[in-house]
Simulated scan of single mutants.
Amino acid sequence: MGEPSLRERALRHLARRDHSRAELARKLAGHGETAEVEAVIERMAELGLQSDSRYAEAFVRSRAARFGSSRLRSELSRRGIDRELIDEAIAGECVESELDRARAVLHSRFSAAPADAREWARQARFLQARGFAPELIRKLLKEPHDESA
């Protein structure tokens, strides 16, 4: 058996999981000319096998419960997704408000409200690393901690 063709390689990658156009181009780049790679990716998109929109929606759906909008935006843009597609995916998949998602993430990690400034900073850093906005973090950490959550 010889080397698999670009088309076969693209199909194998897409069979495992959705890939953004940029990811697929990067994975196929070492196996053919740029024009050939673009032609294969374009054909995959025509057949509906590759879709940046579907990729963005699936990405947001799988991570929205754990991360804030700014982190989702950052990761999707790093993967080569257009800003409009990112905005559509986040608007469509993030049904809960950002505050509710941040509250759920915070309560899943910390069982008690911050007792001192050091603990407040620790919880704030955790939420910030998850991609939540600083204003939202301040608002969330000021409210009383609900033990039933």
Rank of each mutant, 00 (worst) to 15 (best):
residue 73 R to C: 03
residue 106 L to A: 00
residue 14 L to H: 01
residue 31 H to N: 03
residue 29 A to S: 14
residue 24 L to G: 03
residue 68 G to T: 02
residue 128 Q to W: 10
residue 3 E to I: 07
residue 14 L to T: 04
residue 80 G to R: 00
residue 134 P to F: 01
residue 17 R to P: 02
residue 117 A to W: 09
residue 78 R to L: 11
residue 34 T to S: 09
residue 41 I to E: 01
residue 113 A to H: 14
residue 75 E to T: 02
residue 82 D to K: 13
residue 106 L to K: 02
residue 92 G to W: 13
residue 148 S to H: 09
residue 102 A to D: 00
residue 78 R to Y: 04
residue 132 F to A: 02
residue 137 I to H: 05
residue 63 R to V: 00
residue 93 E to G: 06
residue 42 E to I: 01
residue 42 E to C: 12
residue 27 K to M: 06
residue 11 L to H: 06
residue 129 A to E: 05
residue 143 E to G: 05
residue 134 P to I: 03
residue 33 E to V: 14
residue 58 A to S: 11
residue 81 I to K: 04
residue 144 P to H: 07
residue 51 S to M: 01
residue 10 A to E: 12
residue 134 P to W: 06
residue 8 E to V: 04
residue 1 M to G: 07
residue 28 L to Y: 08
residue 32 G to D: 03
residue 30 G to R: 03
residue 42 E to A: 15
residue 22 A to R: 15
residue 131 G to K: 05
residue 65 A to D: 07
residue 149 A to N: 12
residue 85 L to E: 15
residue 40 V to F: 09
residue 82 D to T: 09
residue 2 G to S: 15
residue 136 L to P: 00
residue 49 L to N: 10
residue 145 H to L: 08
residue 93 E to S: 13
residue 78 R to G: 15
residue 41 I to K: 00
residue 119 E to V: 09
residue 59 F to W: 04
residue 103 R to C: 00
residue 108 S to L: 13
residue 115 A to S: 13
residue 38 E to R: 07
residue 72 L to F: 13
residue 33 E to L: 07
residue 56 A to H: 12
residue 38 E to D: 15
residue 20 S to K: 01
residue 72 L to E: 07
residue 24 L to C: 04
residue 50 Q to W: 06
residue 52 D to H: 09
residue 1 M to W: 12
residue 110 F to D: 08
residue 64 A to M: 08
residue 90 I to F: 11
residue 108 S to I: 02
residue 2 G to V: 11
residue 34 T to L: 05
residue 32 G to E: 05
residue 87 D to E: 15
residue 107 H to G: 06
residue 28 L to N: 03
residue 91 A to S: 07
residue 8 E to P: 05
residue 34 T to V: 06
residue 69 S to C: 13
residue 2 G to E: 10
residue 142 K to V: 05
residue 126 F to A: 07
residue 63 R to Q: 15
residue 37 V to N: 07
residue 61 R to L: 10
residue 47 L to H: 11
residue 140 L to G: 05
residue 87 D to S: 14
residue 149 A to I: 06
residue 4 P to W: 14
residue 47 L to F: 07
residue 75 E to N: 11
residue 95 V to R: 14
residue 91 A to V: 07
residue 83 R to E: 13
residue 127 L to F: 09
residue 88 E to W: 12
residue 23 E to A: 15
residue 67 F to K: 02
residue 58 A to C: 05
residue 14 L to Y: 02
residue 62 S to E: 08
residue 107 H to W: 08
residue 98 E to T: 12
residue 89 A to Y: 06
residue 88 E to I: 02
residue 9 R to E: 03
residue 7 R to V: 12
residue 34 T to Y: 04
residue 59 F to L: 08
residue 141 L to Q: 11
residue 106 L to S: 01
residue 50 Q to F: 03
residue 14 L to V: 03
residue 60 V to W: 03
residue 99 L to Y: 04
residue 52 D to N: 14
residue 140 L to C: 05
residue 28 L to K: 02
residue 78 R to F: 06
residue 101 R to S: 00
residue 129 A to D: 14
residue 138 R to N: 12
residue 16 R to D: 10
residue 36 E to C: 13
residue 85 L to R: 15
residue 97 S to T: 11
residue 47 L to P: 03
residue 84 E to T: 06
residue 67 F to Q: 05
residue 93 E to A: 11
residue 40 V to Y: 01
residue 89 A to C: 04
